[in-house]
Design a protein around this nucleic acid. Sequence first.
DNA 1: CACGTGACATACC
DNA 2: GGGTATGCCACGT
Length: 112
Amino acid sequence: MVNIQYQQRIESTLSMVPVGAVVSYGQLADLAGLPGKARLIAKYLKTSETQINWHRVIRSDGKIAFPENSEQANDQRRRLLSEGVLVTNNRVRMASFQWQPDMYTLLEKLRY
DNA sequence: CACGTGACATACC
DNA sequence: GGGTATGCCACGT
Protein backbone atom coordinates (compact mmCIF):
# COMPACT_ATOMS: atom_id res chain seq x y z
CA MET A 1 0.00 0.00 0.00
CA VAL A 2 1.29 3.42 -0.92
CA ASN A 3 0.31 6.73 0.60
CA ILE A 4 -2.43 8.28 -1.54
CA GLN A 5 -0.51 11.51 -2.03
CA TYR A 6 2.47 9.64 -3.39
CA GLN A 7 0.24 7.42 -5.47
CA GLN A 8 -1.42 10.32 -7.24
CA ARG A 9 1.86 12.00 -8.07
CA ILE A 10 3.32 8.77 -9.33
CA GLU A 11 0.31 7.91 -11.45
CA SER A 12 0.01 11.30 -13.09
CA THR A 13 3.71 11.42 -13.84
CA LEU A 14 3.82 7.89 -15.15
CA SER A 15 0.91 8.64 -17.46
CA MET A 16 3.05 11.29 -19.16
CA VAL A 17 5.85 8.97 -20.17
CA PRO A 18 5.58 8.93 -23.96
CA VAL A 19 5.30 5.85 -26.12
CA GLY A 20 8.68 4.49 -27.03
CA ALA A 21 10.46 5.96 -23.99
CA VAL A 22 11.54 4.32 -20.78
CA VAL A 23 12.44 5.77 -17.39
CA SER A 24 14.21 4.38 -14.39
CA TYR A 25 12.61 4.14 -10.99
CA GLY A 26 14.80 6.98 -9.77
CA GLN A 27 14.04 9.21 -12.74
CA LEU A 28 10.35 8.68 -12.29
CA ALA A 29 10.64 9.56 -8.62
CA ASP A 30 12.47 12.76 -9.55
CA LEU A 31 9.87 13.69 -12.14
CA ALA A 32 7.11 13.06 -9.66
CA GLY A 33 8.74 15.45 -7.21
CA LEU A 34 9.83 12.62 -4.97
CA PRO A 35 13.63 12.61 -5.20
CA GLY A 36 15.34 9.71 -3.52
CA LYS A 37 12.23 7.62 -3.39
CA ALA A 38 13.00 5.15 -6.15
CA ARG A 39 12.06 2.24 -3.96
CA LEU A 40 8.70 3.79 -3.37
CA ILE A 41 8.08 3.61 -7.10
CA ALA A 42 8.87 -0.06 -6.97
CA LYS A 43 6.47 -0.60 -4.15
CA TYR A 44 3.79 1.32 -5.99
CA LEU A 45 4.21 -0.78 -9.09
CA LYS A 46 4.04 -3.95 -7.06
CA THR A 47 1.02 -3.10 -4.95
CA SER A 48 -1.14 -0.67 -6.92
CA GLU A 49 -3.94 -1.89 -9.13
CA THR A 50 -3.88 0.98 -11.62
CA GLN A 51 -0.52 0.75 -13.33
CA ILE A 52 -0.70 2.79 -16.49
CA ASN A 53 2.53 2.52 -18.48
CA TRP A 54 4.11 0.24 -15.89
CA HIS A 55 6.14 -1.49 -18.59
CA ARG A 56 8.09 1.71 -19.34
CA VAL A 57 9.80 1.62 -15.96
CA ILE A 58 13.16 -0.11 -15.81
CA ARG A 59 16.23 -0.07 -13.60
CA SER A 60 18.90 2.59 -13.79
CA ASP A 61 21.31 0.13 -15.38
CA GLY A 62 18.85 -0.43 -18.22
CA LYS A 63 17.73 -3.87 -17.20
CA ILE A 64 14.20 -5.07 -16.73
CA ALA A 65 13.65 -5.55 -13.04
CA PHE A 66 12.26 -9.07 -13.32
CA PRO A 67 14.38 -12.19 -13.70
CA GLU A 68 15.14 -13.01 -17.30
CA ASN A 69 12.59 -15.33 -18.91
CA SER A 70 10.14 -14.88 -16.07
CA GLU A 71 6.55 -14.46 -17.14
CA GLN A 72 6.54 -10.82 -16.12
CA ALA A 73 9.82 -10.03 -17.83
CA ASN A 74 8.56 -11.60 -21.04
CA ASP A 75 5.37 -9.59 -20.80
CA GLN A 76 7.29 -6.37 -20.29
CA ARG A 77 9.67 -7.14 -23.13
CA ARG A 78 6.79 -7.86 -25.47
CA ARG A 79 5.08 -4.59 -24.59
CA LEU A 80 8.28 -2.59 -25.07
CA LEU A 81 9.06 -4.24 -28.37
CA SER A 82 5.57 -3.41 -29.61
CA GLU A 83 6.39 0.28 -29.03
CA GLY A 84 9.71 0.09 -30.79
CA VAL A 85 11.91 -0.19 -27.71
CA LEU A 86 14.56 -2.77 -28.39
CA VAL A 87 15.23 -5.29 -25.65
CA THR A 88 18.03 -7.82 -25.67
CA ASN A 89 19.09 -10.03 -22.80
CA ASN A 90 16.62 -8.46 -20.41
CA ARG A 91 18.09 -5.02 -21.12
CA VAL A 92 16.87 -2.12 -23.22
CA ARG A 93 19.27 -0.66 -25.70
CA MET A 94 20.99 2.53 -24.67
CA ALA A 95 19.41 4.48 -27.50
CA SER A 96 16.02 3.87 -25.98
CA PHE A 97 17.05 4.37 -22.40
CA GLN A 98 15.98 7.56 -20.65
CA TRP A 99 14.45 10.67 -22.11
CA GLN A 100 16.27 13.38 -23.91
CA PRO A 101 17.49 16.00 -21.39
CA ASP A 102 15.30 18.78 -22.74
CA MET A 103 12.25 16.61 -22.36
CA TYR A 104 13.16 15.86 -18.80
CA THR A 105 13.51 19.53 -17.98
CA LEU A 106 10.35 20.40 -19.81
CA LEU A 107 8.22 18.04 -17.80
CA GLU A 108 9.75 19.22 -14.56
CA LYS A 109 8.89 22.82 -15.30
CA LEU A 110 5.52 21.88 -16.62
CA ARG A 111 4.24 20.31 -13.46
CA TYR A 112 6.15 21.50 -10.46
C1' DC B 1 10.65 1.84 19.19
C1' DA B 2 13.68 -1.82 16.62
C1' DC B 3 14.11 -4.55 12.92
C1' DG B 4 13.30 -6.55 8.25
C1' DT B 5 11.85 -5.91 3.49
C1' DG B 6 11.92 -4.47 -1.42
C1' DA B 7 10.02 -4.47 -9.65
C1' DC B 8 16.18 0.68 -6.37
C1' DA B 9 20.86 3.48 -6.96
C1' DT B 10 25.67 4.34 -6.61
C1' DA B 11 30.51 3.46 -5.76
C1' DC B 12 34.17 0.45 -5.88
C1' DC B 13 36.87 -3.61 -6.96
C1' DG C 1 31.18 -6.59 -17.80
C1' DG C 2 29.83 -8.97 -13.02
C1' DG C 3 29.84 -9.02 -7.80
C1' DT C 4 29.77 -6.87 -3.25
C1' DA C 5 28.79 -3.24 -0.05
C1' DT C 6 26.21 0.74 1.46
C1' DG C 7 22.79 4.09 1.34
C1' DC C 8 18.13 4.84 0.83
C1' DC C 9 13.03 5.29 2.56
C1' DA C 10 8.12 4.08 3.19
C1' DC C 11 5.81 0.22 5.33
C1' DG C 12 4.84 -3.77 7.81
C1' DT C 13 5.63 -6.52 11.88
